[in-house]
Design a protein around this nucleic acid. Structure first.
Length: 689
DNA sequence: AGGAGTGAGT
């Protein structure tokens, strides 16, 4: 501690900062408050302009994920040196770091070195800006820094993130002696690009060479969104984990937790997590995001609540994961609670947090609130824009999505392939055929992206919904080979279903039965199509085939929140305590609805896209129960928000329109694929879903 | 006495 009246020696300060940073790394320390106290001390002692002191604090704030504070420390230094610039670059998020790098080069007072480049390249990778990456690389070549091992590894990672595995591999092959980190980067690249064979090959090379894989290597082998069929790899990895007997330090336990999460083995993940006597920030995050990514949203929320109860301060990643869980659940009240925590923890300037918050409001039905937050952010990055654009798509506001896309280009942001996915999705859900075609063309010819599975599926969906089945079918043959799979054929089949083209439907189903014999949805679709065309024996044949494969349908259910308590209804549900009241209210309501022009459409259940069992025809669909429950238990004029796990059927869609009219309520329905805003007898989707 | 490459968010 400094003696009163005398400034503490810089060395003592630096030691204190270092100690605080090390204790904060575990996330258990109260973090920001102590850092600010110490920083205040340093400023009072006249060290604000000292590059050594400043970079220590910059690093400390960086560890605490406080890019804004790091920036303030930096700004107080009149002539920052290379190390201070580098520390700042590492503390900032993607787009901010790239901006600062440009400023550093322009300022010209401190010469960038290899550390500078290895700090800024991950920032370019973060926002998938391969152009910026190329600029940095060219700059590195000019200055003779491009051969540095760290720089090359960062470049490999960048190219991999942007989907250019050839380039990544080329760089790797030219390395004299690639180390474990370089291997991990390339392995991870192959995994996330779905090239499992190559990643396993590389893993073998690594072992043959005598390098010892770490748990991070194993994590890199399994992509975040593991596309099922990896059973063999999964088994091998399990065996390897057991045999390898990693030393049980905190980073290893965290990696193991992550690995198990990616293998969808959440019990083992939890065991690895529980076995840690001292949880670190990283381990909490691995477990919470693992739950969220595996769809175990309640568990993700519960663990986050436990963390809160233990007074462990969350970091941006924790919050993002919690918000992702709320978004999946559609749990607005929970999401608002997390929003309060964001304010309490002072994380409103964090771009990850705010982007996740926007996504939460979008997926919980509050598109207006999402937009308000979006407009107030002054550090938006490409992901924030993508989220907002796809939000409009989800809510059927295609024109608004396109407008935002244009604003994004005007703001000189480079669209990513996800941007195009959001735009195409919005066009598809808004019926904007020509705009969608234009975007698809622009994506390949102006921006050089190869369309992926999802882009292609969207295009088929777009054309198919508009009834241009033949065009859709022809377009498929122009898609890249690896994009033609269950996705595009499924979209085509769904379109055939809507426009009753049995011939093309048969063709599409044939492909689908070959590709995914276990998927029930296609059988249902085809059978429904035959039924609607009164080809009953064909319909029966398909159903028989499905039955012989013992295919089970997902039962439909709907969630509604009252206050902050969730209520879940199944079709024909009588389990709810208010069941009697709900049903008699529904009867009364139906009378009023019929007076207003509603015709119950029992046929509709047959056209039902994929949904409830035929027997459910006679039952009341779950969304009607939830809406009735909501109407019964809220004040007149209050809006009703419900979430359904399947797509809404035609009859329920009609019914909800009329209900919104006769009760004068706004009813917001989130179904399996989009949002419907029902108001005064009209739905925002324009009956196009 | 202070800095970097894998691994988080659509």
């Amino acid at each position: 501690m400094p003696s009163p009246g005398l400034p503490p020696p810089a060395a003592a300060l630096l030691a204190d900062v270092g100690a605080l940073r090390r204790s904060s790394r575990g996330g258990i320390a109260s973090g920001s408050a102590s850092a600010r106290a110490l920083h205040g001390l340093a400023v009072a002692a006249g060290y604000a302009g000292d590059t050594f002191v400043a970079s220590a604090f910059t690093k400390l704030y960086s560890t605490l994920s406080r890019g804004d504070d790091a920036r303030r420390v930096f700004d107080a230094v009149p002539s920052p040196d290379t190390v201070l610039w580098n520390t700042l670059l590492a503390a900032l998020s993607g787009s901010e770091a790239m901006e600062m790098f440009v400023r550093m080069v322009r300022a010209g007072s401190a010469q960038p070195d290899s550390t500078t480049l290895s700090s800024v390249l991950p920032a370019a990778a973060e926002v998938a800006d391969v152009t910026m990456g190329r600029c940095v690389r060219a700059f590195g070549e000019k200055c003779g820094l491009a051969q540095d091992e760290h720089v090359v590894t960062a470049l490999i990672s960048l190219y991999a993130k942007c989907g250019d595995m050839e380039c990544a591999r080329h760089l790797f092959d030219r390395m004299v002696a690639p180390d474990l980190v370089a291997y991990n980067a390339l392995i991870s690249g192959y995994s996330v690009n779905g090239m499992v064979g190559s990643s396993v090959e590389l893993f073998k090379d690594l072992v043959t060479l005598g390098l010892r894989p770490t748990s991070s290597t194993l994590v890199a082998l399994i992509p975040v969104h593991s596309p099922f069929g990896h059973e063999q790899l999964t088994r091998c990895l399990h065996a390897y984990v057991v045999k390898a007997g990693f030393d049980a330090n905190a980073p290893v336990s965290t990696s193991l937790t992550t690995l198990y999460c990616r293998l969808n083995d959440m019990d083992s993940a939890r065991k690895a997590f529980d076995a840690m006597p001292e949880k670190t920030m990283e381990s909490w995050n691995a477990m919470i995001s693992g739950y969220a990514q595996n769809g175990l949203t309640e568990k993700a929320v519960a663990l986050f609540q436990k963390m809160q109860a233990l007074n462990v301060p969350p970091n941006p990643l924790t919050i993002s994961s919690a918000l992702s869980a709320c978004a999946q659940l559609g749990a607005l009240s929970l999401g608002k609670w997390v929003h309060k925590i964001i304010s309490k923890e002072n994380l409103e300037l964090n771009v990850y947090v705010m982007t996740a918050l926007i996504d939460m409001y979008v997926k919980c039905g509050s598109i207006a609130e999402a937009r308000r937050i979006f407009d107030r952010m002054d550090n938006k990055n490409v992901v924030s824009w993508n989220v907002m654009i796809s939000g409009y798509g989800l809510h059927g506001q295609g024109a608004e999505a396109l407008k935002l896309y244009k604003d994004m280009l005007d703001a000189n942001l480079l669209p990513t392939s996800s941007t195009f996915l959001s735009v195409l999705y919005a066009c598809s859900h808004g019926g904007l055929v020509e705009e969608g075609r234009t975007a698809f063309r622009s994506m390949t010819s102006d921006y050089g992206f190869t369309p992926g599975i999802e882009h292609c599926t969207c295009m088929v969906d777009l054309l198919g919904r508009a009834g241009r089945l033949k065009e859709a079918y022809e377009l498929i043959s122009e898609f890249p080979k690896n994009a033609i799979g269950p996705g595009v054929w499924g979209a085509l089949l769904a379109a055939c279903m809507v426009h009753k083209d049995a011939e093309l439907a048969k063709l599409a189903s044939q492909k689908l039965f070959e590709l995914e014999p276990e998927n029930t949805g296609y059988y249902v679709l085809l059978s429904n199509l035959y039924t609607s065309k009164k080809q009953y024996s064909e319909a029966a044949g398909v159903r028989q085939e499905a039955k012989s494969k013992k295919l089970v349908k997902t039962p439909g259910c709907t969630l509604i929140e009252l206050g902050d308590k969730p209520h879940v209804f199944m079709a024909g549900d009588r389990a709810h305590p208010q069941s009697d009241a709900i049903n008699s209210y529904l009867e009364k309501l139906t009378t009023k609805m019929i007076e207003a022009g509603y015709r119950p459409d029992t046929e509709a259940a047959l056209y039902d896209v994929e949904e409830e069992e035929k027997e459910h025809m006679v039952k009341v669909h779950s969304e009607k129960l939830a809406i009735a429950f909501g109407l019964l238990n809220t004040e007149p004029g209050t809006e009703i928000r419900i979430i359904k796990n399947l797509r809404v059927c035609l009859d329920c869609h009609n019914a909800t329109k009329i209900i919104s009219k006769v009760t004068q309520r706004l009813i917001v329905v989130r179904d399996a694929s989009r949002f419907h805003h029902f108001r005064d007898g009209i739905c925002s989707c324009g009956d196009y879903w």
